[in-house]
Every structure is written in structure tokens, then in C-alpha cells.
């Protein structure tokens, strides 16, 4: 299983290394989304933050930076998982994968790992973009890293599972967002709250959410390992 996973993951990453679709198209798209958020939510608008004597006026963009970051990641995820299965859906590749006798669980883990690696790179750049554009503080780096890792693992696992469900269909591009986004809604929720705590503190508020993200990641990785064979199998 792990051998097959490594094989498929390195193949997917090699395809990306040559084609550079994610770095030259999806990454700029994600950064563009960050700028568009600035247009949608005026950078001058402020909210009153804190309670009692400690109130201060903070730019809305800074306050909602965590949510915007994860929204940008979610939209990019749709493109990344679409790409991950687009390369398999042409020229009989899906059939060849079925013929190869690879362990379906291994194929799932491989494709998931490749998406995970690609998303992590994307998040690094988009995250730096967020700090640059929205200027939030960073109170608890450890919580931030934990949140990003566990949330991204969950996103990659659920995304790969649902993209496989729509693999080979003509309506794939329109169906996948409908299926994936409600599933990832809890991830958006938990990741945003955990990131808020990591940026603005206190980190005690964030750890339970990071834990929930970890549970989601484990659950969906398990579901993918179990279900992938049924999904890619033709009748």
C-alpha cells in the first residue's frame, strides 16, 4: 500500500513539476483572491475589538484575515483536486490504473499526499500574502502550524475522496464544488477559529478546534482508504 502510495505521489508531483499548472495558475489565482477580498471588504473599515477598557479599533481585514485565508485555500483546493483527477481522466489513464493492480488505498494515499504537498506550498505563499496584505499579528506560531497541518490534511483527504467520486464524469467540474464545499464547511469553521486564536490569542481557545481538525483529517483519511476502491471501480 505504501509502495503504491509513494509511486503515485511521486508521479503526480513529477507531473506538476513539469507542467507547473498549480504554481503558474492556481497560486496567482489564490493571491488574486486575497486582493479581491480587499476590494470587497474595504480596507478602511474598522471594528471595535476587545471588551471593557481594552477596546481598540482594528481594520476589518485584519480581523477576518484567518477566514479569508482559508476561503482562498478552499477555492484553490477545488482547482488542485480537479487537476489531480484531470490528468487521470484522459487517454485511458483511469483504465490503465485499474489494470495495474495497484492497491486502491495506496492510490488514494498517493494522490492525497501529492495534493497535500501542493496545498502546503500554496498555503505558505498565500499565508505570507495574508500577513503582508492584511497585517495581523502572530501570537502562537505552534498553534498556527498545527492548525495548518491538520486542516490541510483533512482538506486533501476529503477533497481527493470526493474528486474520485466524480472522476471520469462529464459534469465533474460543476459537481465537485457542490459535493466538497458542504463537507469542508466544518473545516473552514474550525480552521478559521483556530487560526484566529493563533494570531490574536489566547491559544487556549484554538486548541480544541485544532483537535477537531485532527479528528476530521483522521476520519476522512480512513474513509478514503476504505472507499476509494469502490469509487474508482467500474461496476
Amino acid at each position: 500500500m505504501l509502495r503504491d502510495a509513494r509511486l503515485v505521489a511521486s508521479k503526480d508531483l513529477r507531473v506538476e513539476a513539469t507542467s507547473r499548472v498549480l504554481t503558474t495558475q492556481v497560486l496567482p489565482f489564490a493571491l488574486l483572491v486575497l486582493i479581491l477580498f480587499g476590494f470587497g471588504i474595504s480596507p478602511d473599515q474598522q471594528v471595535i475589538s476587545g471588551a471593557g477598557e481594552g477596546t481598540e479599533r482594528v481594520a476589518i481585514l485584519e480581523k477576518v484575515a484567518p477566514g479569508l485565508f482559508w476561503l482562498a485555500v478552499l477555492f484553490s483546493t477545488l482547482l488542485a483536486i480537479g487537476r489531480s483527477f484531470a490528468i487521470e481522466s484522459v487517454d485511458g489513464n483511469l483504465d490503465a490504473l485499474r489494470m495495474a493492480g495497484l492497491d486502491p488505498a495506496g492510490v488514494f494515499l498517493g494522490k492525497m499526499s501529492a495534493v497535500l504537498a501542493e496545498l502546503l506550498v500554496l498555503e505558505l505563499v498565500v499565508g505570507l500574502g495574508c500577513f503582508a496584505l492584511y497585517g495581523p499579528p502572530l501570537a502562537h506560531p505552534v498553534l498556527l502550524v498545527t492548525t495548518v497541518l491538520s486542516a490541510t490534511l483533512g482538506i486533501a483527504a476529503a477533497g481527493t475522496l470526493y474528486a474520485a467520486l466524480a472522476a471520469g464524469l462529464r459534469v465533474r467540474d460543476t459537481l465537485v464544488p457542490l459535493l466538497v464545499l458542504p463537507v469542508l464547511a466544518p473545516v473552514l469553521l474550525a480552521a478559521t477559529l483556530a487560526t484566529e486564536a493563533a494570531l490574536f490569542g489566547p491559544d487556549g481557545d484554538g486548541w480544541p478546534w485544532a483537535l477537531l481538525l485532527g479528528a476530521f483529517a483522521v476520519l476522512y483519511t480512513g474513509a478514503g482508504i476504505l472507499a476509494f476502491g469502490t469509487l474508482v471501480e467500474e461496476s
Partner: peptide
């Protein structure tokens, strides 16, 4: 294909 569709729908129904 109805059989493939039913199987995929069943996975979806569980998840």
C-alpha cells in the same frame, strides 16, 4: 452507468 452510479451514491450516502 446505473451500477457504477449506485455504488458511488452508496459511498456518498454513508460519508
Amino acid at each position: 452507468d446505473p451500477v457504477v452510479r449506485s455504488r458511488r451514491a452508496a459511498v456518498l450516502g454513508i460519508v
